[in-house]
Amino acid sequence: MQKGIIDRFEGDLVVIEIENSTINIPRKKLPKEVNVGDQIIIDGDHIALDTEGTKKLRAEIDTMADDLFEE
């Protein structure tokens, strides 16, 4: 099992960042509701949206942005 983050969409491919590298997966193999920045779980041929992981990741990014732009 691996966790990855949706980096971008390129035509029929989805670019996924996994451990500081990227892989390309056909868009049709992912759930339709995935968006850029979402965290996913890849378990063999099964790919699922990690809703809780995505929420935590976005909260961490929001905190870092708040810290960066504090007056």
Rank of each mutant, 00 (worst) to 15 (best):
D43Y: 05
T54G: 04
D62C: 06
G53T: 06
P26A: 09
D50C: 05
Q2W: 11
D50F: 04
I25L: 07
D12N: 14
G11V: 04
I41L: 11
S21E: 14
I16K: 00
I16E: 04
T54I: 04
V36W: 02
H46Y: 13
I61L: 11
N35F: 09
T22H: 12
V36T: 08
L49R: 05
K28F: 15
I42G: 03
I47R: 00
R27G: 04
N24Q: 15
D43K: 08
D67Y: 13
V15A: 07
I5E: 13
E52K: 12
T63E: 15
D7V: 10
T54L: 04
A59C: 04
D12K: 11
L68K: 07
T54P: 00
T63S: 14
F9H: 00
D7Q: 14
D38F: 02
N20G: 11
Q39N: 11
L30T: 08
M1L: 11
T22Y: 12
K56I: 12
A59W: 05
G37D: 06
M64T: 10
I40V: 10
I42K: 01
G44I: 04
E52L: 14
T63P: 00
K29A: 12
E10I: 12
A65N: 14
V36N: 02
Q2M: 12
H46D: 15
G44C: 03
H46P: 02
R58K: 14
I5Q: 09
E60F: 09
R8Q: 10
K55C: 08
P26I: 08
V36Q: 06
E70R: 12
N20M: 09
D38W: 01
G4F: 01
I40P: 00
L57H: 12
L68C: 08
V36Y: 03
E17C: 08
I41T: 10
E33K: 08
L30W: 02
K55N: 13
M1E: 12
D62Q: 14
I6P: 00
E33R: 07
L30M: 07
D67P: 04
I23F: 03
F9C: 02
I42P: 00
R8V: 07
D66I: 11
I40K: 01
R58V: 10
E60A: 14
H46K: 15
E10Q: 09
D38V: 04
G44L: 02
I41K: 08
V15S: 05
E17G: 06
I16P: 00
K32L: 12
P31H: 02
I16N: 01
V15M: 07
L30Q: 04
L13Y: 14
G53V: 05
E10H: 06
M64N: 12
N20V: 06
A48G: 09
I25E: 06
R58F: 14
G4C: 04
I6M: 01
E17M: 10
D43T: 09
T63K: 14
V36A: 05
E70C: 09
P31V: 05
I25S: 03
G44F: 04
T54N: 03
K55D: 14
E52S: 12
S21M: 09
T54E: 06
I61H: 05
K32F: 09
I6A: 01
A48D: 15
T51A: 13
Q39Y: 11
D43P: 02
T22M: 07
E52F: 11
N20E: 15
I16C: 02
Q39T: 13
L57P: 01
E71K: 10
R8I: 07
F9Q: 01
A48K: 13
D38T: 03
E60H: 09
G44T: 03
G11W: 01
I40F: 02
T51P: 01
G4L: 01
